[in-house]
């Protein structure tokens, strides 16, 4: 089986293809929520161990931080509508702000916006018609770039160039592999598990 369909289903055309249904909105929200919960659970286990180690890394901490970018790419690959990456990443950020994140409510949300925007622009570049693996990887990388620029300006502003360069590269690679690759795999799995039957992304793979 190969997910090579580049356009949405033939019946959905024009502006209707881009209109968000209720199920699109709710499932995008739920994906944001679930990703938020997964991070929370992940953080409970790994946070205390990994945080001190990460502080000692010369910028490599951006790679694992890319798990935060999963929501946007995953949301877009499932919903396939303009704004999906931005919206899903934003919901995930708001969830983590409400749960309590060390970066603070407003700037968590701002970070979500920038990261979501990175992925969103990439999908827009392909006119919201291509949802294949290479595009997913690029979208993850773009989200990573957004995250790196944002973090370097806001949080690591006094960093030496070496740190900044390592940080940007780690974020891009981490974003591509984790946010892009894992999300793409997750969508295939979700489709096979029948969870996406109300979405073109699910019907396509199940019908194949």
């Amino acid at each position: 089986m190969h997910a090579t369909v580049t356009s949405s289903e033939s019946t959905a055309t024009g502006s209707r293809r881009f209109r968000w249904r209720v199920v699109d909105i709710v499932v995008a929200s739920v994906v944001g929520v679930a990703v938020g919960v997964i991070f929370w659970a992940w953080g409970v286990v790994w946070g205390p161990i990994s945080a001190p180690i990460e502080a000692l890394l010369p910028g490599l901490q951006a790679a694992p931080a890319a798990v935060w970018l999963v929501a946007g790419v995953l949301g877009a690959l499932i919903i396939r509508k303009p704004g999906a990456a931005l919206y899903t990443e934003l919901v995930a950020a708001i969830v983590s702000a409400l749960i309590g994140s060390q970066w603070g409510g407003l700037l968590t949300i701002e970070a979500g916006l920038v990261q979501g925007l990175g992925a969103e622009l990439l999908f827009a570049l392909f006119l919201y018609r291509n949802w294949r693996l290479p595009v997913a990887l690029l979208a993850g990388a773009a989200a990573g770039l957004g995250m790196a620029i944002n973090d370097l300006i806001l949080w690591y502003v006094g960093a030496a160039p070496t740190f900044a360069i390592v940080y940007v590269i780690s974020a891009i690679v981490g974003g591509a592999l984790i946010a892009g690759g894992l999300s793409w795999l997750a969508v295939r799995g979700l489709a096979r598990a029948g969870a996406l039957d109300r979405f073109a992304a699910g019907r396509e793979l199940r019908a194949a």
């Binding site: 909105i25 709710v26 499932v27 994906v31 679930a34 919960v37 997964i38 969870a195």
Partner: peptide
């Protein structure tokens, strides 16, 4: 977790 959440989300919708 995602499978369960998306299922429930679809029902909620």
């Amino acid at each position: 977790l995602l499978v369960l959440a998306i299922r429930r989300g679809s029902t909620l919708a």
